[in-house]
Simulated assay, not measured.
Amino acid sequence: MGAVGIAAVSIGYNVLHMPDAALNAANEPALPSSPMAQQPGDPESVIRGLQDRVGANPNDAEGWQMLGWAYFENGRHADAVRAYRHATKLVPGNATFWSSLGEAAAMASEHDPMPREAAAAFDRAIAIDPKDPRARYFMAVRKDLAKDHEGAIRDWLALLTDTPPGAPWEADLRRTIEQVGKINGIDVAGRLAAVKPIAPHPSMGGGMSVAAAAIPGPSREQMQAASQLPKGQQDAMVEGMVSGLEAKLKANPGNVDGWIMLMRSRMTLGETVKAASAYAQAKAANPAQAGRIRDEARILGVPGV
């Protein structure tokens, strides 16, 4: 499952599990926790806070969803599955809950790349929302696993066509299509060229880069609910998220989209020196993409660019 495995990491992790809470602290604080348990930069404190939240209110579907995301981000995929199951039972009509469950189940499986629970969850998600990008991506993975490589490529191309301009997963999705095409002797160059990337729109709200802003995140209702938290809890939660992203980039410095996200996060938090440091590290680690990194940093207002 070589190409499929690469693809799953690209879409599942880089794209669909980067919540806007870590990217836009002013608008989307989405993982509340206990102020006693929360310590900036400590992902486990976020998990403990969410465990306390659902423990106090087991019918809090959004709390279970957020707990599932926190588990997933920390590599605890089996725990994420259990949390997402609670969310889907409480709100069975939410496509995001189902596609999140499906992805977690796929990642938790040690041998079967598409276990029965994952496949069923993606089916439910698509039935509720045929445009759910996570479910669409993994439905194509399922076709590829079934040796319907042409069908998988066709579905990925359709997803690419619907991808928001400049979205951070565009390059990964294109690379997945290229890899699966190459492995299976399918010429995709012309079809990929027909889906032309569109430059980020200059009028994006707040001057933010489309590449950093177009990532699916918590719902508006979730954001409104989380905004009721005391500011200290919000700030500690967000700093923990951003620190977690920074740690992942140290392990994978070639993730240019991740560096752009980190720069945006630091600028949103008013941490301009740290944003400038992220910019310097991103360029040093990715000299071939220095131009893109510079352009994104300029849009974000990173000092010294």
Rank of each mutant, 00 (worst) to 15 (best):
P43Y: 05
A194P: 09
Q65E: 14
E150M: 10
N14D: 12
Q289H: 13
M267I: 07
E28H: 12
I128Q: 01
Q289Y: 12
E73C: 07
I126L: 09
R134H: 06
P115N: 06
A247S: 13
H201N: 14
W64I: 01
R266F: 12
G206K: 08
T176M: 08
V81Q: 02
R298E: 11
A83P: 03
S99M: 02
E28R: 10
L192H: 00
A171W: 07
G41A: 12
A78I: 11
P303F: 14
P287I: 14
A108L: 05
A119Y: 04
E150I: 12
A236C: 10
F72I: 11
T88N: 08
L159G: 00
I177K: 03
K196T: 08
L16E: 05
M107S: 06
K283D: 06
A95M: 04
G254F: 04
G244N: 09
D235C: 12
G205P: 15
G185P: 06
I11H: 02
D187N: 14
M263P: 03
H86V: 03
A3M: 13
A7I: 03
I260H: 02
A280P: 05
R294M: 09
W156C: 03
S203R: 15
N286Q: 10
A284D: 14
R264C: 04
A278F: 07
G291I: 09
S109P: 01
A21V: 08
P216R: 00
A83N: 00
R53W: 06
S34F: 03
N14H: 13
A3E: 12
Q65W: 11
P113Q: 06
R298D: 10
P168Y: 06
N286V: 05
T163D: 00
W259D: 00
G68P: 05
M107H: 04
L101W: 02
L173S: 00
P40Y: 11
A288M: 10
M66W: 00
E296Y: 11
A83S: 04
K196I: 04
R48K: 14
I11S: 03
S33A: 15
A26G: 12
N57I: 13
L31R: 01
D112Q: 07
E239G: 11
G5K: 11
A146C: 13
W98M: 04
V4T: 04
E170K: 00
A225K: 14
P58N: 07
P130N: 12
A135L: 06
P216V: 00
D60V: 10
G244T: 11
A56I: 14
V242W: 01
A7S: 09
A276M: 08
A158R: 00
A56M: 15
R85G: 03
P35G: 10
N24P: 08
L31G: 00
D112G: 07
E117M: 13
R85L: 08
A70N: 06
E239I: 14
Q281H: 11
T268Y: 09
G151L: 01
H86M: 08
L23C: 07
I198S: 08
V188E: 03
Y71G: 01
M261S: 14
A280W: 05
P218I: 11
P218R: 09
E73I: 07
M18L: 11
R116Q: 15
A288F: 12
P230H: 13
H111Y: 15
D60G: 09
E296W: 09
V210H: 10
M114D: 01
R136N: 01
V9T: 15
P164L: 04
R292Q: 15
A7F: 05
I128S: 02
A105C: 06
A214N: 05
P287C: 14
R48M: 10
D148W: 04
K248T: 14
